[in-house]
Design a protein around this nucleic acid. Structure first.
Length: 674
DNA sequence: GCAAGGTC
């Protein structure tokens, strides 16, 4: 009898790609009853481990299993919400996935080996164990060592897949149980806090309007910190106190060109000190050139595209919110135009044939001649970023599609993905930068000029701006001159802007809130729950204008002097800096009165660890890592975390008045003393 | 009527 192997991937696209490589093109496709997306691919393959085999390659659609509390606990008023910390949880296959489970069971009945081809990440390991559970119902042998194995692969290149097929490894049960504990805790904590919050706060809102009647007021370990970021920035803006600062501006006209010099100290918040320093400059009468340095500089091409970066760029350059960008990218992926859109990887595998992908883009589009240029010798291997999820390559175009056959949103996202890819395969832009420093009295002033020599990737990537500044006149080191003008200028710090979507995504990413696949959902959820609202950013932000001007060009001096938001966090300032070239129309997030009330209410309860800050999610991540490392078990982690949250829950009950006072203050507009 | 994570 021929050995039969059942291969199961996490998604249909992987099943098809793997089958294609292993079967050498010769496979039979069979429909799976009850599901239109999943297919079975039948072929023969000579596995080094097992010899010639009949193979069925199929897939699931992400997680197979769902979990919910046992029936008695499902109605909201059936129990005190705190009972959900230890109510029994049932694991079951949801109606829509029964066909997929049945297919695996049927195929497993006649198979000797189960070969898991889910993504090589923690969730993939858990999905693999779900598949094994289903196969076990057909035959208990699949729990025996060596009967269920998994493939180690990180992309679907032919040689990589064939290699993986020859080197099966065991499923990692630790990773699977780390995910199982995450699932259990999110359910217990989310459901208990959400029911409690809804049942205690929602009745207060009904005083305001009957529409509020059925509104859910939810707590989740991702949605609350997301809301927290929005509220934190809101208060930074509202509580901002402008400060006046002073600086010294020196300019000099030479060869008919006016050059502005920036003070080495930037600006100071002490007017008298600036006056004293300024008078010393004037007393010196002349300034001396201390440095003239011209050196080569370059602007680096962008990194290969990750999901987070795609979402940020979507908000900035395409005027689409993150959820819309992902919907469109998903469609482009399903139609075979771009690669899998959910990836954290910003490194291309060295084995990938990138030139073949560039070649496809010579067929058309506004970028075709640029792509041709890359084929004619302009190609340069993309930079490697720091991230590799070991499951997916960076987002890239896999086929050329005539843009006219796409909707306008699809066109813009496809064009961005293509241009980003071509840019990543180009050479860095090259330029020449001249720095000039002068000593005026004992104060130093600087200016600089930039000449762009080779645009390279910039020609295909209009989202980056890098332009030559005005030419500087020639200065010699040691040259002495009397500045045409020197004066004190006064300015004021300006508040930071409200949080924009790219900033919010960057914060979530940096703090481990959500994953590439879910960040947009969490943002959409806090909008849907009416914790936040978005609106198009107006022109009130001088910050944006300042950076759009191009920073250190001599002409950037305007009116009262340049202002800079001293209250703005460093990360946010960088984010603003990289919006150069962006048009306005970026969405900004403002919390609703309910959003503010929830965050303030929980903050005022005075927990040692804040529910509205990202620390708890980080702790969860550490606990999952401990399970993966074998330092803790799933049961331990669940038990200790439940103890922690039960205490927080009890405290919220004792201090319910604090939360209710916050709702009265912000939502109902009542005076605290009344 | 609850969460977050997969995927279509």
């Amino acid at each position: 009898m021929v050995t039969k192997v059942l291969c199961v991937a996490e998604k249909p696209s992987i099943a098809k790609a793997v089958a294609g490589h292993l079967a050498g093109g010769g496979f039979t496709t069979r429909a799976v009853p009850g599901n239109q997306y999943v297919k079975n691919y039948l072929f023969h393959y000579n596995f080094p481990t097992w010899g010639p085999c009949d193979v069925t390659m199929t897939s699931v659609l992400g997680h197979l299993m769902s979990q919910d509390f046992e029936a008695a606990y499902r109605p909201w008023r059936s129990c005190d919400p705190s009972a959900l910390f230890d109510a029994r949880i049932e694991t079951y296959v949801e109606e829509g996935k029964k066909g997929i489970a049945k297919n695996i069971e049927t195929q497993a009945r006649t198979s000797q080996f189960l070969y898991i081809w889910t993504d090589c990440d923690r969730e993939g390991e858990n999905i693999g164990s779900e598949i094994r559970e289903v196969a076990k119902k057909a035959h208990a042998r699949f729990v025996e060592p060596g009967k269920t194995v998994r493939a180690r692969f990180s992309n679907t290149e032919r040689t990589h897949i064939i290699n993986a097929a020859g080197m099966p490894v065991p499923l990692d049960d630790r990773q699977a149980s780390a995910v199982a504990s995450r699932i259990e805790l999110d359910l217990r904590i989310g459901a208990s806090f959400t029911r409690n919050l809804t049942l205690t706060v929602q009745p207060m809102l009904q005083q305001r309007s009957a529409e509020e009647e059925r509104r859910v007021i939810s707590y989740g370990s991702c949605q609350f910190p997301t809301l927290g970021f929005v509220v934190e920035r809101y208060f930074k803006v509202r509580n901002f106190v402008p400060e006046t600062f002073w600086g010294i501006k020196v300019s000099h006209v030479k060869d008919g060109i006016k050059v502005g010099f920036n003070w080495g100290r930037g600006h100071l918040f002490d007017r008298m000190a600036v006056v004293v320093l300024f008078e010393r400059c004037l007393a010196a009468k002349t300034a001396k050139v201390t440095k003239v340095q011209t050196k080569a500089t370059s602007k680096w091409k962008p990194l290969p595209l990750t999901t987070v970066e795609l979402q940020k760029c979507g908000s900035r350059f395409l005027r689409m919110d993150s959820q819309r960008v992902m919907q469109v990218a998903e469609k482009l992926y399903q139609n075979g135009w771009i690669s899998y859109p959910r990836t954290e990887t910003d490194q291309f595998d060295s084995g990938m044939d990138l030139r073949a992908l560039v070649q496809k883009q010579t067929q058309g589009g506004a970028w075709n001649t640029f792509a041709q240029g890359l084929m004619n010798g302009g190609f340069s291997q993309p930079r490697n970023g720091r991230n590799n999820d070991k499951a997916h390559p960076p987002i890239h175009p896999v086929n050329f599609v005539n843009p006219t056959s796409l909707t306008s949103d699809e066109q813009r996202v496809y064009e961005f993905v293509v241009r980003r890819f071509l840019a990543a395969c180009s050479r860095d832009a090259q330029g020449s930068k001249t720095d000039i420093a002068i000593l005026y009295g004992v104060e130093t002033f600087h200016t600089s000029g930039l000449t762009v020599l080779e645009r390279n990737y910039l020609d295909v990537y209009p989202y980056d701006k890098w332009t030559s500044s005005q030419d500087l006149p020639t200065f010699r080191e040691g040259e002495v001159f009397e500045p045409t003008e020197a004066r004190i200028h006064e300015g004021q710090t300006t508040p930071p802007g409200y949080l924009t979507e790219p900033e919010l995504i960057a914060l979530m990413d940096a703090n481990g809130i959500g994953t590439d696949a879910t960040m947009a959902e969490h943002i959409a959820k806090i909008k849907e729950r009416k914790y936040v609202e978005t609106r198009a950013r107006g022109r009130q932000s001088t910050e944006e204008d300042e950076y759009v001007d191009g920073g250190d060009t001599p002409s950037a001096d305007r009116g009262r002097g340049r202002v800079r938001g001293r209250g703005r966090a460093r990360g946010a300032r960088n984010a603003a800096a990289s919006t150069r070239g962006a048009t306005t129309g970026v969405q900004e997030f403002i919390p609703t009165t309910l959003g503010v009330a929830l965050v303030e209410g929980y903050e005022n309860m005075g927990f040692e660890i804040s529910l509205t800050k990202p620390f708890l999610r980080k702790e969860m991540e550490l606990k999952m890592k401990a399970i993966c490392a074998g330092q803790k078990t799933r049961a331990q982690v669940v038990a200790e975390t439940v103890v922690q949250y039960r205490a927080v829950y009890m405290r919220t009950q004792q201090r319910l008045g604090v939360l209710q006072a916050s709702v009265r203050k912000y939502v109902l507009g009542e005076n605290p003393s009344s």
